[in-house]
Each structure stands twice: as structure tokens, then as C-alpha cells.
């Protein structure tokens, strides 16, 4: 199999593009895809500093590397989630990447600024992934606001978008469909623009990019993701894709083009500021601060010191 661009021996075949590439041309292809996506979707202006959410996984570290290679001014934001050795290893990989590329990194330890994910889940009877997602969204918004970043970039790839879309459609969750977009313009002055520059690139393409670029990412899966519904949707979509190459891309692209605007039109902006943290929300307290309040209410109090006789 030959590279489509230079006719050298191909290392990767992309059925959805009916193309194969050598290592060098594939790296060029991915970087150019991201550059085009950013330009066509008006995600980031050249002068805007970008806060890049980095987990230590392949997608977010590759995104950070690509944005830096494209000349954007980037700062990484890593949340240490407190999920045992998995989180410790994720933090080590992220810090090592930042040091190797001499890029600035903000690290927030959820156990210090709030509660670790297992505690948030245990005392509120929520699935860990729900508590984790809420905490991540809250601190990404909050830190972007506190540090004055106009843009927050995340490493969601095509498979993430397709799986999320399938999940939202299966339950017809109109409010979630309204917010699923590669560019989410802020609907409050304290929010940053949220962008997903990798949404046209598959999970396989991002893994290959990280491999070719020698990015040392965490291979292990989060222990909480076992049996997660997103993985069920991804598996179903992979089976469809294997029979119909390009199906994932058209599913996502046509949703963004024709259906998402209709859901977004029905959205209203947050009308309050949280009485605990000051971030925009609906009602008096934001969802994350309500979660923390629930933890405080349900966590057993420490034993009182013995009364002197």
C-alpha cells in the first residue's frame, strides 16, 4: 500500500477517506485538518490565548501539541481527579509532556479545591462519570474565567461526538443536543468560547498521530469507565463504520449542519449567578455547588472529642 501524497510505503489506511499515508504525510494531513477546522468553524483567532484541557490521554495531549505546532499561544489545564493510581499516572504523563515541550500547565487537584471524584460519587449516589463530568465542566469554566482565557479547547474526537450524539438521540435530550456543537459561543460574560478542534478526526487517527509523534499518553482506561454507556455506543458505531466507511462522519456533520441549530434556538442563557462560587447558572446555586452541599450534608461528621470529666 502506497502513500496517497508521496507514494512511499503507507503506514496507515483511512477507509473513510479512501486514502493511505506514510508517517510524515499523515502528520501533515492531521495538522492541516485541525488548522482547516479551526479556520472554517472560526474557533480561535490568531491572537487569542487558548486554555487546553488535558487529561493525560492521547487526544488532549495530541491536541495541545498540534495547537502549539500551529503557532497558537497555549496553556494546559489538568484536573487531578483523585481516582487512585489512574489519576496519579494521568497527572504524571501530563506534567512530563508539559515539561518536555516547555509549555505552561495549570494543575488543579480536585481533592484540594473540592472533593475527589470517588467522594463526590459516594455521598451523592451519582454514577462516578456523572460527578466527574460535572466537576470537570465546573472547574474548566471557572479557571478559564479566573485566568482570563477567551477560549477553552478540549480533545473530543469524531468518535466521542458520534457516541455522545447517539446517546442524546436515543433519549431525545433536547437540552443536551442544543449544547452539542464544535463551537459553543459563550452565553454569559464569565464563560469562555468552548471549541473542539479534533471533532473531524477519528479516535484511530488520533491514536496513530500520538504514536507517530512519540507522545507518551496514558494507555489504561479509567476504572470507572467499565460498562459505561458511551463505550456501548462507540462499539455499535464502530460496527456500522466497518460496513459503511464514513458513516460516523456523516452522522455528526449532518447533525451539526441541519439539526443542531434548531435545538440551539430553543436554548436560554443562564439567568442567575451562583450564590456559592459566582459562576452563571439557573436558579440560586450552580449544579456543582449543589453537589458539594449534598456531600457535606451526607458525609458523617467526625467524632467529637471526649468530654473532660
Amino acid at each position: 500500500m502506497k502513500c496517497k501524497r508521496c507514494r512511499a510505503k503507507a503506514e496507515i489506511k483511512l477507509r473513510q477517506h479512501n486514502a493511505a499515508f506514510c508517517r510524515t504525510c499523515f502528520v501533515f494531513f492531521v495538522q492541516r485538518q485541525v488548522e482547516r477546522t479551526i479556520r472554517q468553524e472560526r474557533m480561535i483567532a490568531n491572537s487569542e490565548p487558548v486554555l487546553v484541557a488535558v487529561s493525560g490521554g492521547k487526544d488532549s495531549l495530541a491536541l495541545w501539541e498540534i495547537l502549539h505546532a500551529l503557532g497558537f499561544t497555549t496553556t494546559g489545564l489538568h484536573l487531578a481527579l483523585g481516582i487512585g493510581e489512574y489519576s496519579a499516572e494521568s497527572t504524571r504523563k501530563t506534567k512530563a509532556f508539559a515539561a518536555q515541550h516547555e509549555l505552561p500547565l495549570i494543575t488543579a487537584d480536585l481533592g484540594e479545591v473540592a472533593e475527589p471524584v470517588p467522594t463526590l460519587a459516594r455521598f451523592t449516589n451519582r454514577p462516578p462519570c456523572a460527578a466527574c463530568g460535572l466537576a470537570k465542566r465546573h472547574f474548566m469554566d471557572r479557571i478559564a474565567n479566573e485566568r482570563g482565557f477567551p477560549v477553552l479547547a478540549t480533545g473530543h474526537n469524531l468518535d466521542d461526538e458520534a457516541a455522545r450524539l447517539l446517546g442524546n438521540v436515543m433519549r431525545w435530550q433536547g437540552d443536551y443536543l442544543a449544547k452539542q456543537s464544535p463551537v459553543l459561543e459563550p452565553n454569559h460574560e464569565r464563560f469562555a468560547r468552548k471549541v473542539r478542534p479534533l471533532y473531524r478526526l477519528s479516535e484511530y487517527e488520533m491514536a496513530a498521530y500520538a504514536f507517530f509523534r512519540g507522545i507518551d499518553y496514558i494507555l489504561d482506561e479509567c476504572p470507572n469507565s467499565v460498562g459505561a454507556s458511551q463505550l456501548v455506543y462507540k462499539d455499535a458505531l464502530n460496527r456500522i463504520e466497518s460496513e459503511m466507511p464514513g458513516a460516523k462522519m456523516s452522522f455528526v456533520r449532518e447533525f451539526f449542519r441541519s439539526a443542531q441549530p434548531a435545538f440551539a434556538a430553543a436554548e436560554r442563557p443562564p439567568d442567575h449567578e451562583c450564590d456559592q462560587c459566582g459562576m452563571p447558572c439557573f436558579g440560586s446555586t450552580c449544579a456543582f455547588c449543589r453537589l458539594r452541599r449534598e456531600v457535606d450534608a451526607k458525609r458523617p461528621s467526625p467524632p467529637s472529642p471526649p468530654t473532660p470529666h
Binding site: E11, C129, D159, F211, N224, K234
Partner: peptide, 23 residues
């Protein structure tokens, strides 16, 4: 990285790395 038409010899050692992640 090997494409799916590549041959793997009997004495070769290969690594298969899953790319799916999420939760």
C-alpha cells in the same frame, strides 16, 4: 504501524493497542 494488508511472519512479535477510550 501496520496496515491491514501487511504480512506478519510466524516469528514476529506484534503489539495490538486498542484506541477506544471514554466513559
Amino acid at each position: 504501524l501496520l496496515t491491514d494488508d501487511a504480512w506478519v511472519e510466524e516469528n514476529d512479535t506484534i503489539e495490538i493497542r486498542r484506541v477506544m477510550s471514554g466513559g
